[in-house]
Every structure is written in structure tokens, then in C-alpha cells.
Write a protein that binds this DNA or RNA. Structure first.
Length: 470
RNA sequence: GCCUCUGUAGCCAAGCGGUAAGGCAGUGGACUUUUAAUCCAAAGAUCGUGGGUUCGAAUCCCACCGGGGGCACCA
């Protein structure tokens, strides 16, 4: 028999609202206040002519109190499956044992479960099941739900904070004729009507800078991007970046923006600028330390090196610190490799690592006083890259030269190198004002704030091999 | 791509060479203040898939499939 399922239902309260409002009432008291709630029946304790249930909604749990002489169709109520959705109306009261409860004076089946829910106490232990069947995980793993709620709040806070500073949220294409704005392997796709190959974007950067050229002076995009690379605890093939561009600003302005934004988010989401990550304390309050890449190499390895250092010396330094290198690496790439393998993972407190070699920064503007370097920084927190930013390269001739160097690398087999983007160069020809730009890995940021150790716990449906059903 | 761990009923989980414990959920029964309710009864498993070794395999070996961790990759 198919039960009657209503087309709509109108709860008047949620579990958390009820415990906030009535949690303090005396044990064994009744309020005379009728409420209507809805959710899933997660537990049931039947004692002959009296039944207790635990109803879970999007915010928490509340007990149902169902005496046979009060609850209609008591038999039906006690034979509900764990996992069934029900709506309940009745008085809000507290049992003798002090459990806030809704007396079941009316109840309606809202959805039947045709599959049994996981163990009420142990939940799901198999990560594969959690990721594939997130619709179940969200009910049985409270921490999972909490991380996604925090993620949503973070994005909302971020939008508000940027809008208060006159940033305009925009949406730029996901289909790119030329993948650009980052060094990464793209996914490809095909548009039938245009009979054209497109790449799924690896970064929105070049479109956002076109908008600065177009006079949108402060823009940001919360962009899903796609990179055809390995999967790990820190990498999902599709992930989310915040990118923003601010006309008339340089990388120093962007640094203060980042440290203030991150501090703000930490305080709003966790109640403190000091958070815990993997059991270790992390102070995110501004200002953050700033140090150049070469200073940090010296600090961590004792090697004093620079772009002017002879190549052999740079190579020997890498060898001394067990950093593998390739023959074609120039001095900039050698310095970067040395930094990444010996410094980055050992940094814990937030720091802006500044002034990256031009050789490895094809879109950043030349440093105002240090030849061969660019005005670029990365924000490193808990040993991981949180953001990447720079004073933007505005000079079309210089940009063309950098693109061509990249294209050369690509021709030589570097799958991640950039291609020449003629339209972007045309846009620069029209004039890009001094601009500061920023990219932040949203997934990694929420991992940091929610204190989770794998990106799969902040991505609702992480990429997995498709399941085979037989 | 490489290394390593892992896959036992809807869920949790023992067994690790002698022919599949236990718990939750489900089924039947008892029970008007429980809290992972409790008690009684019956039931539920091609031990990821396919080969091999063995008198005998969930247990050992090989391959494959899925997943976790690490490396590589990814600024």
C-alpha cells in the first residue's frame, strides 16, 4: 500500500530553535505551546503504550514523545522505519528525565525510506560510501554536515566583505578557447554547433583582467576551475578559487587585503583569530610576516643564493639538499624548487613569501627594483600555499615575450605551459592600469578553518571513478 | 603512473589454513518517562571479482576492480 504523501508541509520550528527557546524549562513541565517540526526519524524507543523517537532535521535533533492515548495511529507511528521523514505537531514539553520533547499529537509521513539507514551509533566507517552516498553521510556524520555549513557561511561572509569594499562579483566563461591564467593540464571538450574544441578553464585570471581593462575597477569571481591532474588529500580535479583584481593597487595592497580577509573569516567562523589545525595552534591575525623567497632559502638551508648565482652553484645547492632538478631549469626555477622542497612545508605561521623569479611567473609584473624578479607573493599557512598574487603585468610587449617563452616550453613538451593568447594581448594594448590580483584556493581555506585533513571533506561530491551497477 | 594498506549481511565488526562470532537495523512477541532503552524468539553472508596452491581457502599466491594513505604530478 502506497501511503498518502502530502504535496507540502509547513514546519513552524526547527530542532535548534526549540532547544534555544525551551531548553531551559523545568523537567516534567508542559508549555501548552504547539509546534510543528519535520525531519527524519533516527532512533526509536518503544515501551508498550509509550514511544519515544529522535527526530533529526537540518540543524539537530529533538525527542518525540508519543503516548498511545495521545498519538493517532500509534501502531503506525511505532512501526515507522528509522530514516523515514515525518512531520509532527504537538506540544513542546520536557519529560521527567529532562529531555525536551515534542508530544506527538499529529504526525504525517513525508517520505518512506526503502533502504535501511546505517548503524545508529557507529555511522559509516567506509570513506568510499561516505563520498558516494553523501545523502546518507550528511545524516549520520555530524562533522561532515558542519564542515559544509561552514563552507557556505564562509563564501557568504567573503562575498559580503568584498562587496563592502566595492568589489563586483562577475562570472566569466568556463569554456576557454585557450587555457590560461595558470600552469596546469586542462580538460578538453567539444561544442557541436560551433564544431570547436574548448578547454575547461584552469583559472579565470585572464578574463578578469580583461574586465579591468574594460573599466570594472574591482572585480572578483568565485570560480569553479578544472585541472586534469592527480587526486590527493589536497587536490580534487574540480575545485573553487576566489580570484579578485583591484585597479590602482599593487601586491602590497593585496597582502593587507588577504591578511584582513582571512582574519575576519576566522573570527566570524570560529570565534577567534587563533584556530587549531591538526591539533596545532595557528594564529591568523594580521599582520602576517613578509619575507622574500631568497631570504627564506637562506634561513632554512644556510645557502646564500640569488638569480645572479652561477648555475652550477644553484645546482650544487639543490643537490646538497636532495632537490631533484632537470637540465633545462634556469636559475629562477632552481630557486623555486629549492624553496618548495626545503622551506614551504616547514613554514607554519602565516607568512607572505614575496618576490618570485620572473622565469616562473609569466603573468606578474617586473619588480620595481629587483631585476629578474617579479612583484609576486604567495600566502603560506600551515606549510601550504593558500594564495598566489601579484602586481599584474600590464605591458603587452613584455607579456607577449613571456607568452612566447611559455609557448616554446609547450612546444618542447611541457604540457602545463601556457599558449599565446592574442586576444588577451590585444586587451593589454588598450591599457591595463596598475592592478593587484589575487587567487585563493577556497577548498584549502575551508580545510584550514574547519580543521579537516582532506579536501574530500569539504567537497560535497568529490571526484571518484563511476560506480559500476550490475 | 609508482609504492603501500584495504574490501566479511543495509550498517558496525570478529575470524588470518579446518569449513563464517557478536552488535545495530529488519521480522514476531513483552513492556506508559526512554536516551545507542531493555528482555525473549526466529531469520539474514555467492567473505569485491576471476584464477591458482591445498585433502581443505574469508584466511596463502597471482591478476583484475573499487577505495584510503604516501610518492610523483600539481607553483
Amino acid at each position: 500500500m502506497t501511503p498518502q504523501i502530502p504535496f507540502r508541509f509547513e514546519p513552524t520550528a526547527t530542532s535548534s530553535e526549540l532547544s534555544a527557546k525551551y531548553g531551559h524549562i523545568e523537567d516534567g513541565t508542559e508549555t501548552g505551546v504547539k509546534v510543528t517540526i519535520a525531519g527524519r526519524l533516527m532512533l526509536r524507543r518503544t515501551q508498550g503504550k509509550l514511544a519515544f523517537g529522535t527526530l533529526q532535521d537540518g540543524e539537530g535533533r529533538i525527542q518525540l514523545f508519543a503516548p498511545a492515548k495521545v498519538t493517532p495511529d500509534f501502531e503506525g507511528f511505532t512501526s515507522l522505519s528509522l530514516g523515514d521523514w515525518i512531520g509532527v505537531t504537538g506540544e513542546i514539553m520536557k519529560t521527567k528525565r529532562g529531555e525536551l520533547s515534542v508530544k506527538v499529537e499529529e504526525w504525517t509521513l513525508l517520505a518512506e525510506t526503502h533502504r535501511t539507514f546505517p548503524d545508529k551509533f557507529h555511522g559509516i566507517s567506509d570513506p568510499e560510501t561516505r563520498y558516494r552516498q553523501r545523502y546518507v553521510d550528511l545524516w549520520v556524520t555530524p562533522e561532515a554536515r558542519a564542515a559544509f555549513v561552514m563552507r557556505s557561511r564562509m563564501l557568504s561572509l567573503m562575498r559580503r566583505w568584498l562587496e563592502e569594499r566595492d568589489f563586483l562579483e562577475v562570472e566569466t566563461p568556463v569554456f576557454h578557447p585557450i587555457p590560461g591564467g595558470a600552469l596546469a593540464k586542462p580538460f578538453t571538450t567539444h561544442h557541436n554547433a560551433l564544431d570547436t574544441e574548448f578547454f575547461l578553464r584552469i583559472a579565470p585570471e585572464l578574463y578578469l583582467k580583461r574586465l579591468i581593462v574594460g573599466g570594472m575597477e574591482r572585480v572578483f569571481e568565485i570560480a569553479r576551475v578544472f585541472r586534469n591532474e592527480g587526486i590527493s588529500t589536497r587536490h580534487n580535479p574540480e575545485f573553487t578559487m576566489l580570484e579578485l583584481y583591484q585597479a590602482y593597487a599593487d601586491y602590497g595592497d593585496i597582502m593587507s587585503l588577504v591578511e584582513q580577509l582571512i582574519e575576519h573569516l576566522a573570527v566570524e567562523l570560529t570565534g577567534s583569530a587563533t584556530v587549531f589545525n591538526d591539533g596545532r595552534e595557528l594564529d591568523l591575525s594580521a599582520p602576517w610576516r613578509r619575507a622574500t623567497l631568497t631570504e627564506l632559502i637562506t634561513e632554512f638551508t644556510g645557502e646564500t643564493l640569488d638569480l645572479d648565482s652561477p648555475l652550477t652553484e644553484l645546482r650544487e645547492a639543490c643537490a646538497r639538499h636532495d632537490v631533484p632538478v632537470k637540465d633545462f631549469y634556469g636559475p629562477g626555477k632552481l630557486l623555486l624548487e629549492l624553496y618548495e622542497k626545503t622551506v614551504e612545508g616547514n613554514l607554519w605561521d602565516p607568512i607572505f613569501v614575496i618576490d618570485y623569479p620572473k622565469e616562473v611567473s609569466p603573468l606578474a609584473r617586473d619588480h620595481r627594483s629587483k631585476p629578474g624578479y617579479t612583484e609576486r607573493f604567495e600566502g603560506i599557512v600551515a606549510g601550504r600555499e593558500l594564495c598566489n598574487a601579484f602586481s599584474e603585468l600590464y605591458d603587452p610587449a613584455e607579456q607577449r615575450a613571456r607568452f612566447e617563452e611559455q609557448a616554446q616550453n609547450k612546444a618542447e613538451g611541457d604540457e602545463e605551459a601556457m599558449a599565446v593568447d592574442q586576444d588577451y594581448l590585444r586587451a593589454l594594448d588598450y591599457g591595463l592600469p596598475p592592478t593587484g590580483g589575487l587567487g585563493v584556493g577556497i577548498d584549502r581555506l575551508i580545510m584550514l578553518l574547519a580543521d579537516v585533513q582532506t579536501i574530500r571533506d569539504v567537497v560535497l561530491f568529490p571526484t571518484l571513478k563511476p560506480e559500476v551497477f550490475d
